[in-house]
């Protein structure tokens, strides 16, 4: 591929919560089809960074680009609303607490965005829901309501919902942190399958083993800055920074 333009590019991202600087000028980019895991202690700013990619957090400084289009560009309110809605349709996001729509069936959860935002017809939307559910192994739950699903099933439906918009990238915000340990694997399997299909992914996670397995590149953040980044084998086996070493030691020893 001679398209070298990064899929996601973040330049000098800065963010304050009150007097607290939670992102201290972050630069990073994700190539098309690349899988980047972001790790780091709680409060390191990794979730804020992820959420600023699709503008759920508004940066105080810096730029975010998606496939050559600036996400956080300066426009008047109305124009920006139009712009950001269009941009967000190209980015799937998966939340720690699933955030499925409890008043809609699984099929409707998946198809509501294609139906309302892309004008997809009823029959086509149902077929799409089925196709996406097949991908996450839940075709038999198409008419269930979210309240009847386990946490792992909810998260797989949430992934299917995001995929239904055929996004260019998928953002995962601690997708397995709220799950019972025995339910983590079923979600990880779906994410690995997406990785094998060359979906561009940014994964904020606390699971070092999964990050090592699935990511092409790992970014370690602490106190609002990138401390170290590299290939997972290098970063996990032989971290260059003492800060990374102490973080990994705590994690691996438990």
């Amino acid at each position: 591929m001679n398209d070298v333009r990064p899929m996601i590019e973040v330049r000098g991202a800065r963010k304050f919560f009150g007097p607290l600087e939670v992102l201290k000028g972050i630069d990073f980019s994700v190539a098309r089809g690349q899988i980047v895991a972001v790790i780091g202690p709680s409060g390191s700013g990794k979730s804020t960074l992820l959420r600023s990619i699709n503008h759920l957090e508004t940066l105080d400084g810096g730029e975010v680009w998606l496939d050559g289009v600036q996400v956080n560009q300066t426009l008047d309110r109305r124009a920006f609303e139009k712009h950001i809605n269009r941009v967000r349709q190209q980015m799937g996001m998966v939340f720690q607490h699933f955030n499925l729509f409890p008043h809609l069936s699984v099929a409707e959860n998946i198809s509501i965005a294609p139906v309302r935002l892309k004008g997809m017809g009823r029959a086509q939307a149902r077929a799409l829901a089925l196709e996406m559910l097949d991908k996450v192994g839940l075709a038999d739950k198409i008419d269930a309501f979210p309240a009847r699903l386990s946490g792992g099933q909810k998260q797989r439906v949430a992934i299917a919902r995001a995929l239904a918009m055929q996004p260019k990238v998928m953002l995962f915000d601690e997708a397995t942190s709220a799950l019972d340990p025995e339910l983590v694997d079923e979600v990880n399997i779906v994410m690995k399958q997406l990785a094998s299909e060359h979906m561009t992914m940014v994964i904020v996670t606390h699971e070092m083993r999964f990050a090592a397995e699935v990511a092409d590149r790992v970014i370690f953040m602490a106190d609002g800055a990138v401390v170290e980044e590299g290939r997972p084998d290098a970063l996990f086996r032989n971290p260059a920074q003492e800060r990374t070493r102490s973080f990994l030691r705590k994690f691996l020893n438990g």
Binding site: L56, V87, G92, L100, H103, A113, R161, A162
Partner: peptide, 25 residues
């Protein structure tokens, strides 16, 4: 608030989020 965030992350506008997600619930 997660409901609104989920809808916005899919590309729903503020009013669409209210009409399709918030008000029905």
């Amino acid at each position: 608030g997660g409901q609104t965030e989920a809808a916005r992350s899919l590309g729903f506008g503020a009013w669409q989020t209210r009409v399709y997600i918030v008000v029905p619930q």
